[in-house]
């Protein structure tokens, strides 16, 4: 059963009608066929979907990015990648299940993959801490990236988190430092690094594995400095203003590409990645491989210089000519 979001209700309604025709109990026995009607309905659905999904608001995309059926990192590790060998722990405190990582094969390439991981149901979400990593997660990610650097494996990170975990333990073990160190160290690894936002790109928790030579984003993913709800609570004093905040923050793939903050948008199947995992997995593999090949044609120092220049250039300000 497809899971419909609120704004997808018109399509759900049409689909229900179509299903009713298809499943009519007397159709076969009476020899009646509703070919015509069904064809009209199918066209209607197609047209409605095309209309709806090509005009999504920022908030609707946020909802798609958080869709309960949306593919997560481990889904892509089964489809886009092969032979995933998970590696555990930060060698300091524990193994963070909200951050997964390990060796994997991407087509012809052997790579290191690191990704934040959400849970599909309540039980799994508790195990995965709803995809919000503790300091251990970021330190595990750093450990694996250092390993990749020593043995010359390209690093691919998959980002899908509402943010780093805001809890007492996280503060006590210094989540801010864990993220900050990653930001600094990721600027020093000579191996190619590609980051891909596959769902939610939640602020520092996303950036903590997001400093890369190439930053890709799935069509319906978002990447933001603060959650739309958080922004709404502060600026509008009302969490319900989240749709307005989502618009104002310019967080969709298209907005980010236009601002030069991401390098490439990976198109999703109509209606979202969750409707066709095979298709999105292939598109993702093709894009990742192409970027790995391009980056491999550069030397290590060249990659470092261009990665630094890329992040160095972000920002807008005015500077009146000094009279001095």
């Amino acid at each position: 059963m497809r899971h419909y979001l609120d704004f997808e209700k018109p399509i759900a309604e049409l689909q229900r009608k179509l299903d009713a025709f298809k499943a009519h109990p007397e159709a076969a026995s009476l020899g009646i066929s509703w070919e015509e009607e069904m064809k009209v309905l199918e066209n209607k659905i197609f047209e409605a979907e095309r209309q709806l999904y090509s005009n999504l608001t920022s908030w609707q995309r946020v909802q798609l990015a958080r869709h309960p059926k949306r593919p997560y990192s481990l889904d892509y590790l089964r489809t886009t990648f092969q032979e995933f060998e998970e590696l555990h722990g930060d060698r300091l405190y524990s193994d963070d299940h909200a951050m997964v990582g390990g060796f994997a094969r991407l087509g012809t390439e052997r790579v290191m993959v690191i990704g934040t991981q959400k849970g599909r149901d309540t039980k799994e979400n508790i195990f995965r801490n709803f995809g919000s990593a503790h300091p251990e997660g970021y330190r595990k990610a750093l450990r694996l990236m250092k390993l990749a650097e020593r043995f010359r494996l390209p690093v691919i990170t998959l980002i899908d988190t509402a943010g780093a975990y805001p809890g007492v333990g996280a503060e006590e073990r210094h989540i801010a430092e864990a993220i900050a160190v990653n930001l600094r160290e990721m600027m020093t690894f000579e191996v190619p690094i590609i980051a891909c936002v596959i769902g939610e790109g939640g602020s520092g928790g996303a950036l903590g594995i997001g400093v890369a030579d190439r930053v890709l984003i799935l069509e319906n993913a978002y990447y933001s400095v603060i959650s739309p709800e958080g922004c709404a609570a502060i600026l509008w004093k009302d969490r319900a203003a989240a749709p307005k905040a989502a618009e104002a923050l310019k967080i969709t793939a298209t907005n980010l590409k236009a601002a030069g903050l991401v390098d490439e948008i990976i198109p999703e199947p109509l209606g979202g990645a969750h409707l066709d995992l095979d298709a999105i997995s292939l598109t993702l593999r093709e894009s990742l491989l192409r970027n790995v090949f391009q980056l491999k044609s550069l030397t290590g120092p060249e990659r470092l210089a261009s990665r630094y220049a890329k992040f160095r250039a972000f920002g807008h300000f005015t500077e009146p000519k000094s009279t001095a």
Binding site: L183, G204, S224, V225, I251, L256, L261, F314, G315
Partner: peptide, 9 residues
């Protein structure tokens, strides 16, 4: 927005 986040990196 995201320009602020990027100042961290």
């Amino acid at each position: 927005g995201m320009f602020s986040l990027m100042q961290m990196a």
